[in-house]
Nucleic acid binder design. Structure first.
Lengths: 339, 339
DNA sequence: CTCTGGCACTCGTCTGAGCCGAGTGCCAAT
DNA sequence: ATTGGCACTCGGCTCAGACGAGTGCCAGAG
């Protein structure tokens, strides 16, 4: 009974603090929420909540502010799922439907997320290793130089320049092209690399010195984890909206946004696409960003997570709203990728 | 004589203000520079400079600060070219030499510029319209869906998804592929679009309903100016280094950095690759960014400017240094693109 | 045992006065 | 044209005091 009301008080504190950005006092609380008790009672509850480390006061004569632990509890047990408004749903579908290629999908998703949550949005490109090969194209640029184009099931395209040790006739090239495609089309990247290895021994084009160079280059671009780290950021301007007390965060945040490796650590491992992960304040991996939270989820066709996407904002954020937006965008993107 | 000393005073003021970030007074000036005159004299000169609108005082009892007009004069007539240090030259060559493809070149240039100038760096991708077509590839994904891949002479690759109105057999597809390539390979983009138009009437694959859809899509992606607007930004974290008085600039700056269109307007039209353009404060096109300057130049093989690259920073920046860095990077990038 | 009204207390913020000092402008002298 | 001297201005800092939001605690009622 009492315990229940205390949690209601915590919820009210979180909600008020998120919307006003100011420490909330007992008086304001009973005014704005129908708690059915007096300020004094609320004060007692607050004292108890503070005892448990769920809220804190910035200074003695100020109202209370949720702690990381308080937000944690709120997110885990108190927040009710907030359905997106019709307008928001419409915005999602209409914006994502116009996408013409993978780059565009990613681009638009980022914008969308930033717009919906008014936070900083981060979207990772589908991970290379989990895609299958759709097609390999070899384009002669000069007699001794090729451009290899690797097209994946996700629509992702990897290109690479190849220097040949010798001239390569059109005939030989097309034979090589056929061999390569026969070997890898439809395979998962990891398997494809193995398959390619066999070409150098078996196939018709094997005699060519050029073959091994081309194959080596393809294998390299398949196992190139540099490109796995591709992420796109949007809504950085929302950083300026973080509000007071976040001046010191701007610098490290901007730095993190430029360092894709850091950003990926921040997003966290892609989990199944059906769960939304929330990391609050110090739970995150970056010291300097202790005042920020991350809401992220995996996405991809089926339940398998091809990559991660999410938002970053001040711990004092609208968690239910952000979680709903992140989940919704992830679903739509996944659906689009399925096609 | 007198006029000459006044300009020396202006130069001294600009240099001191840039390095200390604080209004500079007459006393400090004679201490730090060998002007050979007394503070009182300098004060008279300052009064004259202020009369001409070259410097101003933030408030009555403060030192002087250069105005936009003052910086302008400094840049045009007073700044001596500052050669890059050996270490900087080395940094440029070593960093840019490792680049593997166009994306990588652009990426690395941005980083480099940001690092060298400690400002925000912006690099535009080579403009589509000025490149020639190297190859067009059509990859079937499903019976009614194609991926078109357009490979340009600059190494740039444009992809696009195409929905077909009807199934397309492998035979028809390869005929179409051949026709398209025969028509456009080697052509400049603008001409290529025209050539494609003829296919629908003349070529062997013309009967197919799919042909017109594919051709239309290709033409669209060739004349798609959306992709001309591709720019990459780096060193956004340097925004936090702008210092006091720039808090209000952070927001509009971040917004501009996300809006590629705005960014391009900011950079300005690509001029010949041999001149470095400087736009100071209100000379720029964006109202909100009145406190910032842009140092930019064109780049590309030969003297023809394929695109623009440059840096954005507070008006109170090290112009000679920035100009040197921008010029140097542009030269190296141009050289790399020539290959 | 829970809730409530009352009350003293704390402490951060806001305001205004006063001081300090950097820097100026002007003037008379060289 | 240059210089030293001097009065003046004005922003920034510090300090004290008033204000008020919000608390903690307590005694009394249900």
């Amino acid at each position: 009974m009492v315990e229940e009301r205390r949690l209601a008080v915590l919820r009210a504190i979180v909600e008020d603090y998120v919307s006003t950005q100011e420490p909330v006092g007992s008086k304001a609380l009973v005014d704005r929420h129908q708690l059915g008790v007096s300020p004094a009672t609320v004060r007692n509850d607050m004292a108890a909540l503070e005892e448990e480390g769920l809220i804190a006061q910035p200074h003695t004569s100020a109202g209370r502010v949720p702690t990381d632990k308080g937000y944690r509890l709120f997110v885990d047990r108190l927040s009710t799922v907030k359905p997106l408004s019709a307008a928001e749903r419409r915005a999602i579908t209409s914006l994502l439907e116009g996408a013409v290629d993978l780059d565009d999908v990613v681009q638009r998703s980022v914008r969308l997320l930033a717009q919906l949550t008014r936070q900083i949005a981060v979207v990772q490109y589908p991970i290379l290793a989990r895609s299958t090969v759709r097609h390999v194209e070899l384009v002669p640029l000069t007699p001794t130089r090729l451009l290899s184009v690797l097209i994946l099931s996700t629509g992702r395209v990897e290109q690479r320049m190849i220097e040949l040790p010798e001239d390569l006739a059109e005939d030989d090239l097309s034979r090589l092209r056929t061999d390569v495609n026969r070997a890898v089309v439809g395979e998962r990247i990891a398997d494809a690399a193995d398959r390619l290895g066999q070409i150098t021994q078996e196939s018709a084009s094997a005699r060519l010195a050029a073959t091994s160079v081309v194959v080596a280059s393809l294998i390299e671009s398949m196992s190139d984890h540099r490109s796995d780290e591709r992420v796109v950021v949007g809504g950085a301007a929302n950083l300026a909206r973080f509000g007071e007390g976040y001046e010191a965060t701007i610098r490290p945040m901007l730095e993190a946004l430029e360092e894709h490796v850091v950003l990926l650590r921040l997003l966290g491992e892609a989990t199944s696409s059906s769960t939304v992960t929330v990391r609050i304040g110090r739970e995150g991996p970056v010291q300097e960003l202790s005042g920020t939270s991350v809401v992220a989820t995996g996405y991809g066709p089926g339940d398998e997570a091809l990559a991660t996407l999410g938002i970053v904002g001040p711990t004092r954020m609208d968690y239910p709203g952000s979680m709903a937006a992140v989940r919704a965008v992830a679903r739509y993107v996944s659906r689009i990728l399925e096609e």
